[in-house]
């Protein structure tokens, strides 16, 4: 049983790593940051693996204690990783097919539930 778990977990983790650089659809702002050579996430693989924990931790602090920093804020993720439809200049929802969040989650086969409540595109005045 334990061995099975180990195998399963390593498969799971490696599947997260598997998509490190093939990933193209980073999102509007994130891509331009990357192009400019700047570093936003010092260690992307940690973010890749741990972002659910970070977000969950942040959500409890914000909601229950009123701590409103932009570190690990979901708003931050969305505003950087959203893509724009070039034709009508509207953002695509990050949880829609082919977009940053949903694409990766689909590849690793993990469902996510943020966007049944959270806004899926950057704030209005950023449009």
């Amino acid at each position: 049983m334990n061995r099975f778990l180990v195998v399963f977990l390593s498969l799971f983790v490696s599947s997260v790593f598997a998509y490190i650089d093939e990933y193209v659809n980073l999102g509007e702002q994130a891509s331009s940051i990357k192009l400019s050579g700047k570093v936003f996430h010092k260690n992307p693989s940690i973010i890749r693996k741990m972002h659910p924990e970070f977000l969950r931790h942040k959500r409890d602090k914000t909601l229950r204690q009123g701590i409103r920093t932009n570190e690990y804020s979901l708003k931050g993720c969305v505003s950087c990783h959203a893509n724009k439809n070039k034709i009508n200049n509207q953002y695509y929802s990050v949880d829609k097919k082919g977009q940053f969040c949903s694409d990766c989650h689909k590849k690793v086969g993990v469902s996510f539930d943020c966007f049944s409540c959270h806004r899926t595109v950057p704030r209005e005045d950023l449009l």
């Binding site: 940051i33 700047k38 570093v39 010092k42 260690n43 932009n70 804020s73 505003s79 950087c80 704030r123």
Partner: peptide, 16 residues
């Protein structure tokens, strides 16, 4: 241990 942090150098995110 891992020094994970958002480095916001030169990047203007949403400002509060």
């Amino acid at each position: 241990t891992t020094g994970v942090a958002i480095v916001a150098s030169g990047i203007t995110l949403t400002t509060f």
